[in-house]
């Protein structure tokens, strides 16, 4: 693509940048989700961040840490979002956001391994449980809507979801422990 051309303001990003950009989307998503607990809001923030990341692509030096660079932008978008929403909803405290953001970045490499383990662990779920999780996480769905569809009491659905997530967490942990031991 345009790697060998002198970058300018109007220059589209290099192929490598595009690759980095796409590869880090989910990590940015999780990074923001740790600070803003609503997936809908996170999507909004990520979108804003993506626009900036895209615009500022020339400022990124290839070969340096993309996640570190992009997460700064994402972090700024989180701050803006929090400022905007502070008045109408209860959100996490500044201290909390600061700390978990740090942790999310530190843990970021590890999270990729965890995702692989998650794929494995979803395969180990009972079919019924896997279906429930899939329904719950389908776009626009939540525990309540799934409960309505299934005709189950909402609390019992919450309980099931909690149990399944818990068993996934444990399975991931076991899986990683086994891998680490090998």
């Amino acid at each position: 693509m345009s790697n060998d051309e002198t970058p300018s303001a109007s220059q589209p990003p290099s192929a490598e940048f595009v690759q980095l950009f796409t590869r880090h989307q989910r990590r940015l998503y999780i990074y923001i989700l740790a600070q803003v607990p609503s997936p809908v809001d996170v999507e909004e923030i990520l979108q804003e961040a993506n626009i900036i990341i895209w615009r500022k692509c020339e400022q990124f030096e290839l070969g340096t840490n993309f996640l570190a660079w992009a997460s700064r932008i994402a972090k700024f978008e989180v701050l803006k979002f929090r400022d905007k929403k502070r008045r109408d909803r209860l959100y996490f405290s500044d201290t909390f956001v600061e700390q978990v953001a740090d942790e999310a970045l530190v843990a970021s490499d590890d999270l990729e391994l965890r995702r692989k383990a998650l794929i494995h662990c979803l395969g180990k779920l009972r079919e019924k449980d896997r279906d429930l999780i899939q329904q719950r996480y389908a776009p626009g769905e939540n525990g309540k809507s799934v409960a309505d569809v299934l005709g189950r009491p909402v609390n019992s659905v919450y309980q099931s979801l909690g149990r399944i997530r818990r068993s996934l967490m444990e399975c991931i942990h076991r899986r990683l422990a086994v891998e680490a031991g090998q």
């Binding site: 989910r26 998503y29 989700l33 201290t95 942790e103 999310a104 965890r114 998650l118 389908a138 997530r165």
Partner: peptide, 27 residues
């Protein structure tokens, strides 16, 4: 609880990661 110790912070991130990955991928 999360700010109380590193393990809790870690658990928080891992849980969020699970939640987020499920959201992202299922979507």
């Amino acid at each position: 609880l999360v700010l109380a110790d590193d393990g809790a912070r870690r658990l928080y991130i891992e849980y969020i990661d699970l939640h987020g990955t499920l959201h992202w991928d299922t979507a």
